[in-house]
């Protein structure tokens, strides 16, 4: 009886002591958590793919709750997830941004230098794998329309200049044309983006001029003029970071080769600063 009593008292007082200590500590180390973060995380796909630009679903959820990320920023979840996230945040959402294919080459029959010798099948993949087609540029569009053939939505056609054109209303961003192009000229880009550097050549300026009249010669004027530092040079080629581009068209105006192109009808963008 005595042992039981002593046990009860000693253990009970120890437990009470720790409980008190922890209660004080929990006040001291209290972390304010936005309950919406957890709710948003629950509706996200949870694969931590990083396609949203954040390190994982948890970080994205936090970004949404703090206003750093758009509610429709999860490309994997699509419209259904965007709707649920928007409901948690108490706003309206029209689903994730629509993307369309962009052809990053302007070197059609008129601009790109032709060379003789190729009489193989009129197919981009075969031409690329064998002699490299009719054009002197080894980076540009081959012009045989394999992407157009791959498109299942009638969203592409070849124009009279021998270049594929995307009909953006029909494009579903399925990526078939991207896969079909052996020279990686086609890219899926947010529909709202209107400024594109339409060249993939990694040659230096001198050699670009020898094969094409509209290729990027790596003069860097666009890099210098860009107000948001959206353009950078890599391997003698200007690249555009669509996350930063605001469609201001400064680069379009200074490009001496007219490589950078502005698509009429696209909106001027306001960016939320990304951390």
């Amino acid at each position: 009886m005595n042992t039981a009593l002593v046990s009860l008292i000693s253990m009970g007082s120890m437990a009470a002591l720790f409980a008190f200590g922890l209660a004080v500590a929990s006040k001291q180390f209290a972390v304010e958590i936005d309950p919406r973060v957890e709710e948003i995380e629950q509706v996200l796909p949870g694969v931590n793919c990083g396609a949203c630009g954040f390190a994982g679903c948890a970080n994205f959820a936090e970004g949404v709750a703090t206003g750093k990320a758009p509610v429709n920023g999860c490309p994997v979840g699509g419209a259904s997830v965007a709707k649920m996230v928007a409901a948690i945040m108490g706003v309206e959402s029209d689903g994730p941004k629509r993307r369309v294919a962009q052809v990053l080459c302007k070197g059609g029959l008129a601009e790109a230098k032709q060379r003789g010798g190729y009489d193989g099948p009129r197919d981009c993949r075969i031409a690329h794998a064998t002699q490299g087609g009719d054009k002197a540029c080894s980076y540009g569009c081959l012009g045989y329309g394999s992407c157009v053939a791959a498109c299942a939505f009638d969203a592409m056609y070849m124009d009279e200049n021998g270049l594929p054109v995307v009909i953006e209303e029909n494009c579903t961003a399925c990526g078939k044309c991207v896969d079909a192009c052996p020279r990686n000229i086609i890219m899926l880009v947010d529909e709202e983006q209107g400024v594109h550097i339409r060249c993939r050549s990694q040659l230096t300026g001198r050699f670009v001029r020898q094969v094409c009249t509209v290729g990027c010669i790596a003069c860097q004027r666009c890099v210098k003029v860009c107000p948001t530092e959206a353009i950078y040079m890599e391997n003698n080629l200007a690249h555009i970071n669509y996350d930063k581009c605001i469609n201001c068209r400064e680069c379009v105006a200074v490009c001496p080769m007219n490589t950078i192109e502005w698509q009429e009808g696209k909106p001027v963008l306001e960016r939320v600063a990304q951390v």
């Binding site: 922890l22 500590a25 929990s26 180390f29």
Partner: peptide, 9 residues
């Protein structure tokens, strides 16, 4: 518990 609270903070 203490460590957990501390780390969370």
């Amino acid at each position: 518990q203490l460590v957990e609270m501390f780390l969370h903070k």
